[in-house]
Design a protein around this nucleic acid. Structure first.
Lengths: 240, 240
DNA sequence: AGGAATTTGTGCGTATGTATC
DNA sequence: AGATACATACGCACAAATTCC
């Protein structure tokens, strides 16, 4: 068993590339449109030009943008870049925002009946349950409960998880989520609240159940998300 | 017709990556071996660390090396990185060296009988002939005569050609040489010499005829190379 | 076990070159 | 020809991971 990577906030250049990626996918910048200049972007995002250029390098390699010397940086058509937040479909009402996460708890439990079986075997399984508070631009917008097969690791602590579960799976379990299926309902937060962040059950809560598969059609993750519909909404355009 | 890109010496970070690539392919660094540290490499190659890291970025993307934070930079097995000088098989007797080129002449001529036909049609063609003096580590080691179909461009001046013909083809003709066939003989330089560089016909001259194909099996280039066997040799290991 | 040294990763700022408009 | 914008290059500081003692 490979040792688990410790917690790591995303490096700034990846935060920037993800933010821009989400903004592009959300339509803030349209196909063919020229982005602000590197100097402007760097200043408005409060990073050095070199850091911004590293972020643009990522997007260029993902064929999300095209850079033309002397002219500008342009949005390419058919954006299918593999972003870490490719499947994160909550957005603020005034724009996509930048996702982040705060881990509330990590527990190994017997898989409850409402959590589907992972992989092929249908027998009872133990599974990891990770509860997180999700933010968009520092605003708490959702509560999340994530389940995945306990077979992947014997130990797991909150300190080992980073900002992105999908990135964590990739780096530690060598599995990459390539397809998800969402079911959205209206439902209150059932029992748990996070007073420290001013989060509690609200009548305006939306509820998402998600099944996440790997490329070989193995169900790798099951999650429930309760989001505050006053603050954000579910938008499928973010992962077209 | 797209306008031809002007001459451009290879950017320093590409020079470095090519040099290291050649050294690795030549066996100067073996599989699994750790390269000198970034600081050492940068100092010995007389570039800034940032520039060296950009070169290593290229090799890492080509899967030629693997970098492990805190440990070092290691040569990966099965090096098949697509290097600009992937098919440049001359090396100094004491190591691969870094290739460069000096253009002697550029002419559009009727294709001579000893130059094979390009593409499918067997009729007489006009073709570009580029003569170059080739260097390894600033030492003139070979004379080169390159022929390619004149259909690709109406005009061509020496100032538009850079250090690498293959890179030039790629950037201007959208064609990439993916396969070559070499025939090597012992033969004197026939008529032309370059006194300004102290190059002249020598009894020790080796002679190479090369056919270069694209991925769709179209003959794209024919070249003759006379090299000074006292200074360098032909080595197939450089492109395994 | 743990701390120091080593080595790569991230980030900043600046200067200069080169292509485009 | 001048202004704009991306590309290259340099150098530095600190963080994070590894290695070694």
């Amino acid at each position: 068993m490979k040792t688990l990577a410790p917690a790591q906030p995303l490096p700034k250049f990846l935060q920037i590339s993800e933010l821009l990626s989400r903004q592009i996918r959300a339509g803030h910048f349209r196909t063919g449109e020229r982005l602000p200049t590197e100097a402007e972007l760097a200043q408005s995002l409060d990073v050095a030009v070199g850091t911004l250029r590293k972020a643009l390098d990522v997007l260029e390699k993902q064929q999300v943008i095209e850079r033309i010397q002397g002219s500008g940086t342009y949005v390419r058509s058919g954006n299918t870049g593999k972003s870490i937040y490719e499947f994160f479909r909550l957005e603020l009402h005034d724009g996509p925002g930048m996702p982040s996460a705060h881990i509330l708890s990590v527990d190994k439990l017997e898989r409850p009946q409402d959590v589907p079986t992972f992989g092929a075997d249908a027998k009872p399984q133990s599974a990891w349950r990770v509860r997180r508070l999700r933010f968009l631009n520092q605003t708490p917008v959702a509560l999340e409960e994530i389940w995945f097969d306990a077979k992947h690791t014997r130990q797991l602590k909150a300190s080992q998880l980073g900002e992105s579960m999908y990135l964590f799976y990739q780096q530690n379990f060598q599995l990459w989520i390539s397809r998800v299926e969402d079911h959205i309902y209206a439902q209150d937060v059932p029992t748990w609240t996070v007073p420290e962040f001013g989060v509690k059950a609200k009548k305006t809560t939306g509820y998402i159940e998600r099944l996440s598969w790997t490329a070989n059609n193995e169900l790798a993750e099951f999650s429930k998300t309760w989001f505050d519909a006053k603050l954000c909404r579910y938008s499928s355009r973010l992962s077209q």
